[in-house]
Amino acid sequence: MKPTRPQQSLFGQLVGRAGGLAPVLEAQLASCSTMPEEHCPECFTVQVTGDVPLLPPDTECPLSFEADIRGRTDPGDIALVLLWHEDGRITDVEISWFEDPHPALPDLHVSEPGANQC
């Protein structure tokens, strides 16, 4: 299925924070479809289609992005947005959070790199 608006918004934030990987992520996320995960309403699988640039073989897996959570003010209250990939293509988006339920996608704001570090 086509990515939802919250997923598309999250994709835009990730591309904006991906540095040198931004063109690859942008191309892959622009040509993908998504499916919800059974175990979590916020996590989802990604199927990248078409002839798109691939992530370099040495790319960290998963790619990890810190995200502030709307309504949370404690500096330690961040979620991680994890981009899992295989053979250079994104396969899954996981929201990692220490409480249940996970924050909703519209409540996440991907932070500037290093913004939550002391």
Rank of each mutant, 00 (worst) to 15 (best):
M1S: 08
P3D: 01
P3T: 02
P3S: 02
P3F: 00
P3N: 02
P3H: 01
R5A: 09
R5Q: 07
R5G: 00
P6C: 00
P6E: 00
Q8V: 06
Q8M: 07
L10P: 00
G12T: 07
G12C: 03
L14C: 03
L14G: 01
G16R: 09
A18G: 06
A18W: 08
L21F: 10
L21T: 06
P23K: 06
A27K: 09
A27M: 07
L29V: 06
A30D: 13
C32D: 03
C32F: 06
C32T: 08
T34K: 05
M35K: 12
E37R: 12
E38V: 10
H39N: 08
H39P: 01
H39C: 08
P41E: 09
C43P: 01
F44P: 01
F44L: 04
T45G: 10
Q47A: 15
V48P: 04
V48C: 05
T49K: 12
G50D: 04
D51Q: 15
V52A: 08
V52M: 06
L54H: 11
P57Y: 10
D58H: 13
E60A: 14
E60F: 14
E60T: 11
C61L: 07
C61T: 13
P62E: 02
P62I: 07
L63K: 02
L63I: 13
S64M: 14
F65R: 06
E66T: 13
A67E: 03
D68V: 14
I69M: 05
I69C: 09
G71H: 05
R72M: 14
R72T: 03
R72W: 13
R72G: 03
T73K: 13
P75A: 15
P75H: 15
G76C: 12
G76M: 11
G76D: 14
D77Q: 14
D77K: 02
I78T: 15
I78L: 14
I78D: 06
A79W: 06
L82H: 09
L82E: 12
L82T: 00
L82D: 03
L83Q: 02
H85Y: 05
D87A: 13
G88R: 07
I90G: 00
I90M: 00
T91A: 02
D92V: 04
D92S: 09
V93I: 11
V93Y: 00
I95N: 01
S96D: 14
W97Y: 15
W97M: 05
W97E: 02
E99F: 13
D100F: 12
P101N: 05
H102K: 11
P103H: 03
P103W: 03
P103L: 04
A104E: 14
A104M: 13
A104Q: 14
L105K: 01
L105D: 01
P106R: 05
D107V: 05
H109W: 10
H109P: 00
E112Q: 12
P113L: 12
P113K: 12
G114W: 11
G114V: 10
A115C: 10
C118T: 08
